[in-house]
Computed example of a mutant assay.
Amino acid sequence: MLLGETPDLRFVAKPAGIPCFPPHGNPTGDCVLARLVGTFPDQAQPFPPGFEGGIAHRLDTLTSGFLVVARSPAALERVREEWPALRKFYRFRCSAQPPFGTQVLTTPIANHARRADRVVVQRWPQERHRGPWLPAWTRLRSLGEGWWEAEIRTGVRHQIRAHAASVGLPLDGDVLYGGVPGSAPTLVHVAISGATWSFALEDGMLPAAR
Results as ranks from 00 to 15, higher is better:
Leu67Asp: 00
Gly38Glu: 05
Phe11Cys: 00
Pro48Arg: 11
Ala74Ile: 07
Ser95Ala: 15
Val79Asn: 00
Ala13Gly: 01
Arg87Thr: 11
Ala184Val: 04
Val121Asp: 01
Leu33Met: 04
Ser183Ile: 04
Phe66Asn: 01
Met1Ser: 10
Ser166His: 02
Val167Gln: 01
His129Lys: 06
Leu201Thr: 01
Arg114Trp: 13
Arg10Lys: 05
Leu2Val: 01
Leu3Trp: 05
Pro207Lys: 06
Glu52Pro: 04
Val180Asn: 03
Trp83Lys: 03
Asp172Glu: 12
His189Ile: 04
Ala195Thr: 14
Gly50Asp: 06
Ala70Leu: 09
Leu2Asn: 01
Glu145Met: 11
Glu202Pro: 01
Gln103Ser: 06
Glu5Pro: 02
Pro73Cys: 09
Gly178Tyr: 09
Leu143Asp: 04
Gln43Asp: 12
Glu145Gly: 05
Gly178Pro: 07
Ala116His: 08
Ala110Phe: 13
Ala56Glu: 02
Trp197Leu: 04
Pro84His: 08
Arg78Ala: 11
Val121Ser: 02
Ala75Cys: 06
Asp42Ala: 14
Ala13Tyr: 14
Gly146Cys: 12
Ala34Arg: 15
Ala96Gln: 10
Gln103Cys: 15
Ser183His: 14
Gln45Asn: 05
Glu202Thr: 14
Gly155Asn: 08
Gly155Phe: 14
Glu77Cys: 08
Pro185Gly: 04
Gly54Thr: 03
His24Lys: 11
Trp124Ile: 01
Val120Gly: 00
Ala165Thr: 07
Asn111Leu: 09
Trp197Met: 04
Thr107Asn: 08
Leu9Met: 12
Thr107Met: 09
Ala165Pro: 13
Leu9Ala: 01
Ile55Asn: 00
Gly173Phe: 13
Gly4His: 15
Tyr177Trp: 13
Gly65Arg: 03
Ala56Asn: 03
Arg58Thr: 10
Gly194Leu: 13
Arg139Val: 15
Arg139Ala: 14
Leu169Glu: 01
Trp83Leu: 13
Gly168Leu: 10
Leu2Ser: 00
Ala56Gly: 07
Gly204Ile: 12
Trp124Met: 08
Glu202Cys: 07
His163Trp: 12
Arg139Asp: 02
Gly131Cys: 11
Cys31Pro: 04
Gln126Glu: 15
Leu134Gly: 00
Val104Trp: 11
Gly29Leu: 09
Trp148Glu: 02
Pro15Lys: 00
Glu202Gln: 13
Leu187Gly: 02
Pro19Asp: 06
Ala209Thr: 12
Gly144Gln: 10
Arg161Pro: 08
Glu151Ile: 10
Pro99Gly: 05
Glu81Asn: 09
Gly144Ile: 15
Ala195Trp: 10
Asp30Gly: 02
Arg114Cys: 03
Pro181Met: 12
Pro132Thr: 06
Lys14Met: 06
